[in-house]
Amino acid sequence: MTPAQLADQAAALAHKATILAQNAAGFAAQAAAHAPHGAPLIDLFAIFVMAVFVGYYVIWSVTPALHSPLLAVTNAISSVIIVGAMLATGLKGGYAAHAFGFIAVLLASVNIVGGFLVTQRMLAMFKKKAK
Protein backbone atom coordinates (compact mmCIF):
# COMPACT_ATOMS: atom_id res chain seq x y z
CA MET A 1 0.00 0.00 0.00
CA THR A 2 1.23 3.38 -0.84
CA PRO A 3 1.32 6.04 1.80
CA ALA A 4 -1.46 7.82 -0.08
CA GLN A 5 -3.72 4.74 0.11
CA LEU A 6 -2.92 4.38 3.80
CA ALA A 7 -3.84 7.97 4.36
CA ASP A 8 -7.13 7.53 2.50
CA GLN A 9 -7.98 4.45 4.55
CA ALA A 10 -7.13 6.24 7.75
CA ALA A 11 -9.29 9.16 6.70
CA ALA A 12 -12.20 6.82 5.93
CA LEU A 13 -11.79 5.07 9.28
CA ALA A 14 -11.62 8.38 11.05
CA HIS A 15 -14.81 9.43 9.29
CA LYS A 16 -16.55 6.24 10.42
CA ALA A 17 -15.31 6.77 13.95
CA THR A 18 -16.66 10.30 13.91
CA ILE A 19 -20.09 9.06 12.82
CA LEU A 20 -20.00 6.35 15.50
CA ALA A 21 -19.02 8.90 18.09
CA GLN A 22 -21.81 11.18 16.97
CA ASN A 23 -24.29 8.32 17.21
CA ALA A 24 -23.00 7.44 20.66
CA ALA A 25 -23.33 11.04 21.75
CA GLY A 26 -26.88 11.10 20.43
CA PHE A 27 -27.77 7.96 22.38
CA ALA A 28 -26.11 9.31 25.47
CA ALA A 29 -28.12 12.52 25.20
CA GLN A 30 -31.32 10.52 24.78
CA ALA A 31 -30.46 8.37 27.75
CA ALA A 32 -29.63 11.45 29.80
CA ALA A 33 -33.05 12.94 29.04
CA HIS A 34 -34.70 9.85 30.49
CA ALA A 35 -32.33 9.47 33.42
CA PRO A 36 -33.37 11.11 36.69
CA HIS A 37 -32.17 14.71 36.70
CA GLY A 38 -29.24 15.81 38.81
CA ALA A 39 -28.68 13.98 42.05
CA PRO A 40 -31.19 11.21 42.84
CA LEU A 41 -34.18 12.33 44.88
CA ILE A 42 -33.19 10.25 47.87
CA ASP A 43 -29.81 12.04 48.10
CA LEU A 44 -31.50 15.42 48.06
CA PHE A 45 -33.98 14.23 50.65
CA ALA A 46 -31.13 13.09 52.90
CA ILE A 47 -29.54 16.53 52.61
CA PHE A 48 -32.91 18.11 53.44
CA VAL A 49 -33.46 16.01 56.56
CA MET A 50 -29.93 16.71 57.80
CA ALA A 51 -30.45 20.44 57.19
CA VAL A 52 -33.67 20.39 59.23
CA PHE A 53 -31.68 18.97 62.14
CA VAL A 54 -28.89 21.50 61.72
CA GLY A 55 -31.54 24.20 61.66
CA TYR A 56 -33.16 22.83 64.80
CA TYR A 57 -29.96 23.04 66.85
CA VAL A 58 -28.73 26.31 65.38
CA ILE A 59 -32.04 28.09 65.93
CA TRP A 60 -32.37 26.99 69.55
CA SER A 61 -29.00 28.60 70.21
CA VAL A 62 -30.26 31.98 68.97
CA THR A 63 -30.78 34.37 71.88
CA PRO A 64 -34.44 35.46 72.26
CA ALA A 65 -33.31 39.09 72.19
CA LEU A 66 -32.35 38.62 68.54
CA HIS A 67 -35.51 36.89 67.36
CA SER A 68 -36.51 39.89 65.22
CA PRO A 69 -33.18 39.98 63.33
CA LEU A 70 -33.53 36.20 62.98
CA LEU A 71 -36.84 36.65 61.18
CA ALA A 72 -35.37 39.30 58.92
CA VAL A 73 -32.23 37.36 58.04
CA THR A 74 -34.06 34.08 57.39
CA ASN A 75 -36.22 36.12 55.07
CA ALA A 76 -33.16 37.30 53.19
CA ILE A 77 -31.56 33.87 52.89
CA SER A 78 -34.75 32.09 51.85
CA SER A 79 -34.63 34.42 48.86
CA VAL A 80 -31.77 32.26 47.59
CA ILE A 81 -34.74 31.06 45.54
CA ILE A 82 -33.30 33.71 43.20
CA VAL A 83 -30.96 31.06 41.77
CA GLY A 84 -33.98 29.25 40.35
CA ALA A 85 -35.35 32.53 39.07
CA MET A 86 -32.02 33.39 37.43
CA LEU A 87 -31.84 30.06 35.61
CA ALA A 88 -35.42 30.47 34.43
CA THR A 89 -34.59 33.94 33.13
CA GLY A 90 -31.18 33.27 31.62
CA LEU A 91 -31.44 29.87 29.92
CA LYS A 92 -33.14 29.14 26.59
CA GLY A 93 -36.81 28.65 27.33
CA GLY A 94 -39.42 30.89 25.70
CA TYR A 95 -41.14 34.12 26.63
CA ALA A 96 -43.38 32.79 29.40
CA ALA A 97 -40.51 31.18 31.30
CA HIS A 98 -38.35 34.28 30.88
CA ALA A 99 -41.12 36.63 32.02
CA PHE A 100 -41.99 34.57 35.10
CA GLY A 101 -38.30 34.20 35.88
CA PHE A 102 -37.70 37.92 35.59
CA ILE A 103 -40.56 38.75 37.98
CA ALA A 104 -39.18 36.22 40.46
CA VAL A 105 -35.66 37.72 40.15
CA LEU A 106 -37.13 41.14 40.89
CA LEU A 107 -39.15 39.99 43.93
CA ALA A 108 -36.30 37.97 45.38
CA SER A 109 -33.87 40.88 44.94
CA VAL A 110 -36.14 43.19 46.94
CA ASN A 111 -36.06 40.61 49.70
CA ILE A 112 -32.36 39.87 49.61
CA VAL A 113 -31.17 43.48 49.73
CA GLY A 114 -34.00 44.63 52.00
CA GLY A 115 -33.67 41.66 54.35
CA PHE A 116 -29.92 41.87 54.84
CA LEU A 117 -29.92 45.67 55.19
CA VAL A 118 -32.73 45.79 57.72
CA THR A 119 -31.01 43.03 59.70
CA GLN A 120 -27.80 45.06 59.64
CA ARG A 121 -29.74 48.11 60.82
CA MET A 122 -31.27 46.22 63.72
CA LEU A 123 -28.04 44.56 64.79
CA ALA A 124 -26.17 47.88 64.70
CA MET A 125 -28.51 49.14 67.44
CA PHE A 126 -27.71 46.40 69.94
CA LYS A 127 -25.04 47.91 72.16
CA LYS A 128 -23.50 46.98 75.46
CA LYS A 129 -23.59 49.17 78.54
CA ALA A 130 -21.04 51.97 78.23
CA LYS A 131 -18.48 51.44 80.96
Binding site: H37, I47, A51, G55, V58, T74, I77, I81, G84
Partner: peptide, 15 residues
Protein backbone atom coordinates in the same frame (compact mmCIF):
# COMPACT_ATOMS: atom_id res chain seq x y z
CA UNK B 1 -32.50 19.88 42.34
CA UNK B 2 -30.68 22.76 44.00
CA UNK B 3 -28.95 22.04 47.29
CA UNK B 4 -28.56 25.70 48.28
CA UNK B 5 -32.33 26.08 48.16
CA UNK B 6 -33.04 22.76 49.85
CA UNK B 7 -30.67 23.44 52.76
CA UNK B 8 -31.81 27.05 53.17
CA UNK B 9 -35.46 26.07 52.94
CA UNK B 10 -34.94 23.48 55.67
CA UNK B 11 -33.12 26.00 57.90
CA UNK B 12 -35.76 28.68 57.48
CA UNK B 13 -38.59 26.17 57.79
CA UNK B 14 -37.32 24.86 61.10
CA UNK B 15 -36.49 28.37 62.30
Amino acid sequence: SNIALIVTGALVGSS
